[in-house]
Design a binder for these strands. Sequence first.
DNA 1: GCCCAATGACTGCCGAAGCAACTATAAGCA
DNA 2: TGCTTATAGTTGCTTCGGCAGTCATTGGGC
Lengths: 165, 165
Amino acid sequence: MFDDPRITAVGLLVEAHAGLSARFAAQFEEHGLSPVEFEVLTRLARSPGNQLRMTDLAAQTSLSTSGVTRVVDRMERDGLLARRACPSDRRSSFAVVTASGLQRLDETLPGHLRIIEQWFTGQLDPEALAALLDGLRRVRDAVHPGATAGSTGSTPDWDGAADAS
Amino acid sequence: MFDDPRITAVGLLVEAHAGLSARFAAQFEEHGLSPVEFEVLTRLARSPGNQLRMTDLAAQTSLSTSGVTRVVDRMERDGLLARRACPSDRRSSFAVVTASGLQRLDETLPGHLRIIEQWFTGQLDPEALAALLDGLRRVRDAVHPGATAGSTGSTPDWDGAADAS
DNA sequence: GCCCAATGACTGCCGAAGCAACTATAAGCA
DNA sequence: TGCTTATAGTTGCTTCGGCAGTCATTGGGC
């Protein structure tokens, strides 16, 4: 019963993910970042003006809004981000990447890409990689609506702005 | 820079994993189990005598030994497990699955398998699935046998870390 | 304009899990 | 045998993150 191929399949996905996550985390740590902090930094850096409203940031990450409040607290304390009032809605505030945050990201990204290549994409020849990604994409598309539990019902235009694909 | 195909590839893996994990967690919860508890239960149930020493259990899961102590505490309190003294080594103790624990697992597993099929393996035709699993296996093999966790030499203590489920 | 529901952010409180320190055994060695 | 080191498990302290509750603001209905 435990060697059911379905269990095995999940095991492979989970272990590949865990193994890669550990490599990533180790490299992030070399640059003084946690995985969430890296994620926050990239989401903001790819947004217009290097900023997002707290709620939108929460929607794009694996965090709840309270989680975002706290991560932004820490990163603001460390000088990577700043809060900026929203002119059109006084309830809202933006999280903006500071120059220091952008620099940190610049220092971190090349190594991150290198690691992805070394342990993931570079492990397979192009067709095998394409097949893998194709399979992942189909699973992702099937399972995505509602991924990351946090967000409550509405999913306005949850475009998954993330990793287009 | 952010639409680099390597970033996209990681995004697919992460989102597929997160989405599946969320489905799993929801079904586990219907049976009063957390993802870690399910993992612990399966690891024990597939071991001879439905038991493992605490350390071995920790090695087979995503948890540290102190994490295992606490999960076993909770599950013992809930009647799913019991601790049993090790006859040959009085420092050691076994975690054993109780009848109630086995029953809980029996109730949970069929639905779990159904969900894997529904959202993962059943989303792809056999060759595509085989290709996906083959790719995952290669990545897993590359990244898993933590030969040396850190090239920096720090963290001599391979601890897995990463995120569970 | 006024009231009330909806929304954005933050805080109190809690559980989960890791590291480091501690206790108790066990094993190695003189 | 007695001493030293390693190992198994637990516990203290801390960080992280979620939920639910709170406060300020907004916008719709009248």
